[in-house]
Design a protein around this nucleic acid. Structure first.
Length: 592
RNA sequence: GCACCCGUAGCUCAGCUGGAUAGAGCGCUGCCCUCCGAAGGCAGAGGCCAGGGGUUCGAAUCCCUUCGGGUGCGCCA
């Protein structure tokens, strides 16, 4: 149970009653007030600002928010779970719940296990969400920056899925532009090299060693049949094979991070004509039918004029109608469609697939592209589908505080694979989520494998392992002890009377709310921070047991007390394991 | 020149979509622990939330503006 959501409903019902009694206007927007944990836990378990939010509308009956709050508090006291409700400050209502509310939630956790919190977004969850992420060009191995987008996207997908949405993870393969021709040219040189020719990779082509196996594969498949032929003859076959090889490599890189996409969508497929018309053409036609496409001139950018600027008439999408700064070209000077035109067609396909929400995860260098994409989705869907573009900032790779040098082998960057191989998938995944997506991230290769509290990955996993250690001790102390969830759920949980046990218990109860708000905001880092805080509550409670043995989880003299405490420990295990699993991080039972 | 993102403790960052006395880790200071309830613990100092204006019961959060950083700026993707 999400007690915050639950009491939002209760308070809304009371307000509704007041409205029917004529004490409040009838058309209150009940979504406006919130129920949340109070600033200070000593104030109570729940706090609501309802009285202040509706103070204006209530003016006729209540002179000030405190009066309305007082009336609400009286009603709330009637609720069976409420111990007391009081007015504080300018009109907050602080609610203290009966202890059994929280022990009931612990029982719920024990019964539901790692499914506690699932579906927490409830009715506010979008039914169908598409998360498009990574979408690295198929021209080389993934680098650490791609890794951030990959982890972010995958964790976000896992999060909204857990919160109750139906999720599709999708990868958009940019296999249609000039960059794949450059890839083909690069691979062709490696092909000649594999045949024994001496080659140098000129400026502008991809120099990385990773294309050598592609050259070898081409040599194996075609022998010397492509040697000396005009580009027009070898370009397509070389390109196709090279793209396949690059995508295979990228899939492996993703697999190393435990990431799989359900859909790989080819940009090139959008240009293939079915019944004489391609998806791109169809999309542009649709916009044209909505009178959003015209032939016109664009003013040159202010400031320094690009050298090759040529004032010409072009095909433009009227994105300014939807909040963009300037209308955007759909065709290049050679008549081919721009990347934006393909992207419009791509998003149109996603809209047609019936998604309620589209999430695109991009690198921050694409920030200038957001407005036009939002404009396109708005124009095509009429607002029925919303697009949320999440920009991931750069990753600065460090080692002991010093920037890491680039690797020659891969071209000019540190590959994601190198990092994963060095520090492990869990460290990479969790660290990538310890920062907001739009804040730059420093990733220290030495730090993330430290076994200390400076290392958040270790800190959280260790809490889980420590909890299991407590269970093992319990088993050792009481050989016949049944630690199954059903047995523990039947324990006398009222024995959890210590202050830090209560804190831990109440923090566990917040899990569904964290899932809900993190999913709604599309911000998986909130879950990572919650897990870290939860671990922190547990570690500090554990540490108190050092000086005060009577607080330890296992108490030789009392089977009941031990059961109650191990019930709490098991609840913690479930929530930690659940949260880590949502983020795609392992929850080990012991640290080695 | 314009757009977008960012500016919070000495450092690295949270701050739950407008709430109460702005939080955590590192670092610093002071005590305690030192061997498996191991991979440290407790406490303390430290802030004009970049500056200025506005909106309202109430602003780190929303709007305007200045300053300072980052990213991008027809026909690349």
């Amino acid at each position: 149970m999400n007690i915050y959501a639950e009491f939002h409903v209760r308070i809304a019902a009371i307000l509704d009653r007041f409205a029917k009694q004529g004490r409040l206007p009838r058309d209150l927007d009940l979504a406006r007030f919130v129920v949340e944990p109070p600033r200070d836990a000593s104030l109570g378990d729940l706090a609501s600002n309802a009285a202040m939010v509706f103070a204006k509308e209530a003016k006729a009956t209540y002179a000030n928010p405190r009066q309305l709050a007082a009336d609400l508090a009286i009603q709330l006291t009637e609720e069976p779970e409420v111990d007391r409700a009081e007015v504080a400050g300018p009109g907050f209502i602080n609610i203290r719940l009966k202890p059994r509310v929280f022990t009931d939630i612990l029982r719920e956790i024990l019964v539901e296990g790692v499914d506690f919190g699932r579906g927490a977004a409830g009715r506010v969850a979008a039914a169908k969400i598409n998360v498009e992420f990574v979408s690295a060009n198929p021209t080389g191995p993934m680098h650490i920056g791609h890794g951030r987008g990959a982890v972010f996207g995958d964790a976000l997908a896992g999060l909204v899925e857990f919160a109750g949405s139906q999720v599709t993870r999708e990868y958009y393969i940019n296999d249609a532009g000039a960059q794949v021709d450059v890839l083909a040219s690069s691979a062709y040189l490696r092909y000649l090299e594999a045949l024994g020719d001496k080659v140098t990779i000129p400026e502008g082509l991809y120099p990385g060693d990773y294309l050598k196996p592609v050259g070898a594969a081409l040599a194996e498949k075609y022998g010397d049949r492509l040697r000396g032929k005009p580009e027009a003859e070898w370009l397509a076959p070389v390109r196709d094979l090279a793209i396949d090889a690059m995508m295979a490599m990228i899939r492996e890189d993703l697999a190393a991070l435990n990431i799989t996409h359900e859909v790989f969508f080819s940009e090139r497929s959008l240009h293939v004509r079915h019944n004489g018309v391609s998806d791109v053409e169809a999309a542009i036609d649709e916009l044209r039918a909505k009178k959003l496409v015209y032939e016109g001139r664009l003013p040159p950018p202010k400031g320094q004029l690009p050298e090759d600027w040529e004032d010409r008439e072009q095909t433009l999408f009227k994105s300014t109608d939807f909040g963009d700064d300037i209308d955007r070209p759909l065709k290049k000077s050679d008549g081919a469609f721009t990347y934006f035109a393909s992207d419009i067609a791509y998003h149109r396909k996603k809209i047609e697939a019936g998604y309620d929400v589209l999430v695109d995860v991009w690198g921050a260098d694409h920030g200038g592209y957001v407005k036009r994409m939002n404009a396109a989705v708005l124009a095509l869907s009429g607002g029925a589908t919303t697009l949320d573009v999440k920009l991931c900032q750069m990753v600065k790779l460090m080692r002991d505080g010093e920037p890491v040098k680039m690797s020659k082998r891969s071209g000019d960057f540190v590959t994601l694979r190198e990092v994963v191989d060095e520090v492990g998938v869990d460290a990479v995944r969790f660290m990538m989520l310890t920062r907001k997506n739009d804040a730059p991230l420093e990733f220290d290769l030495a730090r993330v494998i430290e076994q200390s509290r400076d290392n958040p990955v270790f800190y959280v996993q260790y809490a889980h392992a420590r909890a299991h250690s407590a269970l093992r001790q319990g088993r050792a102390a009481f050989a016949d002890l049944d630690l199954s969830a059903t047995r523990l759920a039947a324990a006398d949980l009222a024995l959890l009377s210590d202050e830090s046990e209560q804190s831990l218990l109440k923090y566990l109860a917040q899990y569904p709310r964290v899932i809900e708000s993190a999913a709604a905001a599309h911000e998986p880092h909130r879950l990572a921070f919650y897990l870290h805080d939860l671990a922190s509550f547990f570690h500090s409670h554990w540490n108190r047991g050092k000086d005060q043995p009577q607080l330890r989880f296992v108490n030789q003299d009392s089977r009941d007390l031990t059961c109650a405490r191990l019930a709490l420990v098991t609840g913690l295990i479930h929530v930690l394991a659940s949260g880590l699993s949502v983020l795609g991080v392992k929850a080990p039972e012991e640290m080695r």
